[in-house]
């Protein structure tokens, strides 16, 4: 088993981060073209805790090299099952993801947590990401090690791109939100705009 772990901070409030998180893989993110679809498959609120639980299915375009595909089987897309838990009272988002393609030969389990940063809880958000990668296929240890090593490296590259892309989404969300507020303000102040109903 190999472990990938990182933590960092976003210069945005927890509310902004947790909202933008839902559009992380949208058109504002130019860094993660390998994510081609994100579908919500269930969503519920726990009546006792108020926790919002969401299940999503994430479709990725496969770009593994030939030697990996020859071992794992050659499919052009891979699927990830993600459950997330948003606790609004404790301001905590936890996201758990696992691969469902190739799950008989490779297990990738990731947990991400977003919480207000202790240094500036109203302005910054702390992000912790941890993934466990285990090759399950039978056969030589050497092959297992190579698969785990390849996967952890690819995971690391995608995590870096994911963070860069998420920064773009956060910036864009803040801009659009500010524009909407400004528009609303202008609309309330201007008679002409009110009549034009922009």
């Amino acid at each position: 088993m190999k472990i990938f772990q990182q933590s960092s901070e976003f210069d945005y409030s927890w509310e902004e981060v947790s909202t933008s998180n839902w559009r992380k893989y949208g058109p504002w993110n130019e860094k993660t073209p390998h994510v081609i679809a994100v579908d919500t498959i269930s969503r519920t609120i726990d009546p006792h805790t108020g926790i919002l639980r969401t299940e999503r299915l994430i479709t990725c375009k496969q770009s593994a090299p030939k030697w990996v595909l020859s071992i794992l089987g050659g499919q052009d897309t891979s699927l990830v099952y993600e459950t997330s838990y948003v606790d609004p009272a404790h301001k905590k988002v936890t996201m758990c993801a696992m691969n469902i393609t190739w799950s008989d030969v490779l297990s990738v389990r990731e947990t991400c947590v977003y919480q207000p940063s202790s240094s500036a809880p109203d302005a910054k958000t702390n992000f912790v990401q941890r993934a466990e990668i285990t090759a399950l296929c039978g056969g030589w240890q050497k092959i297992k090690n190579s698969i785990e090593q390849f996967t952890v490296e690819r995971f690391q590259q995608n995590a870096a791109k994911g963070k860069e892309g998420f920064e773009m989404v956060l910036e864009m969300s803040r801009k659009v939100f500010a524009e909407q507020r400004e528009m609303l303000r202008l609309q309330q102040e201007s008679k002409i705009l009110q009549e034009a109903r922009i």
Binding site: H48, T49, E55, T83, Y85, M98, I100, S103, T111
Partner: peptide, 20 residues
């Protein structure tokens, strides 16, 4: 495949849905 994934995810549900 999703049914299997849900089964595998029970531990996460138990941990993260627990009241704090």
């Amino acid at each position: 495949m999703l049914r299997e994934a849900r089964e595998d995810n029970r531990e996460n549900d138990a941990e993260h849905m627990r009241p704090k």
